[in-house]
Structure formats: structure tokens, C-alpha cells
Design a protein around this nucleic acid. Structure first.
Length: 107
DNA sequence: AACCTGACTCGCC
DNA sequence: AGGCGAGCCAGGT
């Protein structure tokens, strides 16, 4: 399984209402240094509709500025619609489900 | 075929 | 405290 495959697997397992950071995904995929690759992998987005790339945010909880899916606003709306708390235009990194962001087990 | 760049993040200086 | 470099992979020029 190549790097992209792993990344996609991890991203696809992000539960609704949660968000994951690039670093988190990279780490779960194998190496935390893949954060950059994670972004690129999502950029390719080979399987739209299957890979919830809108649930992936930066470590600051901000959506990617180059989100080519309808704009950051669109991504934020989607997340809000899933129950993700937003504060000042970014994901509430401290209060999602009472936990810290996406601390759910990703296996 | 080699080099550059890109949806990132962390550690040093 | 802010800025810069390093580490990863794939696709385009």
C-alpha cells in the first residue's frame, strides 16, 4: 500500500462531526512528516464523495486556503452542518465533543 | 530524467 | 517571539 492509499484510508475514517489535522493524519498514516503529502494527496482527491477532505484542517483549525471544492467558506459550512463547532472562522480546536479536536482512535 | 513546487508541521536560531 | 530550514511523496514542466 503506497503512501496515498494509507492517507486516504485514514481520512475516510474520520467520523462525522469531527475534524482531523494534517499532522494527525500524517502521523496515523505512518510518519508525521507526511503532513505535506497529506495535503497533496487530498488535492488529487481521486475519489470525491468518498474522501471527506473537508474534514481535514490545519493544526490551527483553519481550513486550507487553497481548498478547491467551493472555497473555504463552503468547507466550513459543510463542517458546521455536521456539528463541528466553529469559532472566529476556524474550528474550535478545544471544544469538539468535549474532547480536543479529533482525538478519536483512528484505526 | 531531473528539478521545482505544493491543501503542512515542528524544531532551531 | 518570529523567521527559516528540513522531511515526506507525487505530478507537472
Amino acid at each position: 500500500m503506497n503512501t496515498f492509499e494509507k492517507i486516504y484510508e485514514v481520512v475516510k475514517q474520520i467520523p462525522r462531526g469531527y475534524v482531523a489535522t494534517y499532522g494527525q493524519i500524517a502521523e496515523l498514516a505512518g510518519n508525521r512528516h507526511w503532513s505535506r503529502v497529506v495535503g497533496y494527496a487530498l488535492h488529487s482527491n481521486p475519489q470525491p464523495g468518498v474522501i471527506p477532505c473537508h474534514r481535514v484542517v490545519t493544526k490551527d483549525g483553519d481550513v486550507s486556503r487553497a481548498f478547491a471544492f467551493g472555497g473555504q467558506s463552503r468547507q466550513i459550512e459543510l463542517l458546521k452542518d455536521e456539528g463541528v463547532e466553529f469559532v472566529d472562522g476556524h474550528v474550535d480546536m478545544e471544544n469538539i465533543n468535549g474532547q480536543s479536536v479529533y482525538s478519536k482512535p483512528l484505526n
